[in-house]
Nucleic acid binder design. Structure first.
Lengths: 129, 129
DNA sequence: ATTGTTGCAAAAATTTTGCATTATC
DNA sequence: GATAATGCAAAATTTTTGCAACAAT
């Protein structure tokens, strides 16, 4: 069975993903860890990210500037992506959409809802003025 | 100035994007057109897609299986992406989110809202049983 | 021992780009 | 003729994979 589940590198990769709110890309995770774990390879980061996704421990938020950005917070929440600084910001939303009920009634099986706002974040907006 | 704006290829590319509900990828558009326009090149498709995006004539819906999927329907609507067949389906939603108001009040500049549901579409769901 | 995990480098795959050529105004 | 658009192929990027070596039970 895959996911034996001990490997200090796997653990370090997950910890890095889980302990940031940056919604990192694979290469960001790799860069964070390569000082601490010099013989880490990028392939391992990708392989573990794929595993975590299968296990439902992380989700993909969006592709930003050609890179997939992930999140270890799998709770139902929305995101704001800044077109200027490419940061991804969490937004917590409580309301349930009537659309979801409609989809369910039409026979769709909703596994995940991904709400992403695109625009200019308040920090960049200030800088740009 | 960029966007002279006539080129029969540009026109054909836009027409292809605008006249499908498949939310195509660049290579799908290319494949559709290469019979009709044998000397079309994929680079041109990419360059025109980038231009249409700048012009606000199309938007990116999501990245599916590593390919960016676009939509010439720039009206505010949601999408459902099937994990099984990778189809992207339009969903029209009328309600406005209270979250948007909140973001606006916090100084964010929302340019686009992207609501994507992931799951199994009703057709695949039937087939899988 | 057996099965899982990794490093490394090569390979895939998508997207971008440089430059000479062609089309449009 | 000047500017914009394209073809082609090479390059850049991100992601995946094969395989031998290593680690864990």
């Amino acid at each position: 069975m895959k996911g034996h589940n001990f490997s200090s590198k796997r653990e370090a990769i997950f910890k890095t993903i889980a302990s940031t709110k940056t919604h990192p890309s694979a290469s960001w995770v790799y860069d964070q860890l390569k000082e601490e774990i010099p013989n880490l390879s990028l392939g391992t980061v990708y392989r573990n990210i794929a595993l975590f996704k299968e296990q439902g421990k992380i989700i993909t938020v969006a592709s930003v500037d050609g890179e997939e950005r992930i999140d270890a917070d799998v709770s139902d929440h929305a995101h704001f992506i800044c077109e200027h600084c490419s940061s991804v910001i969490d937004l917590y939303e409580t309301e349930l959409s009537p659309l979801e009920k409609q989809l369910f009634e039409s026979g769709f099986d909703i596994k995940r809802k991904n709400v992403v706002f695109h625009g200019i974040c308040c920090e960049c907006k200030e800088k740009l003025n």
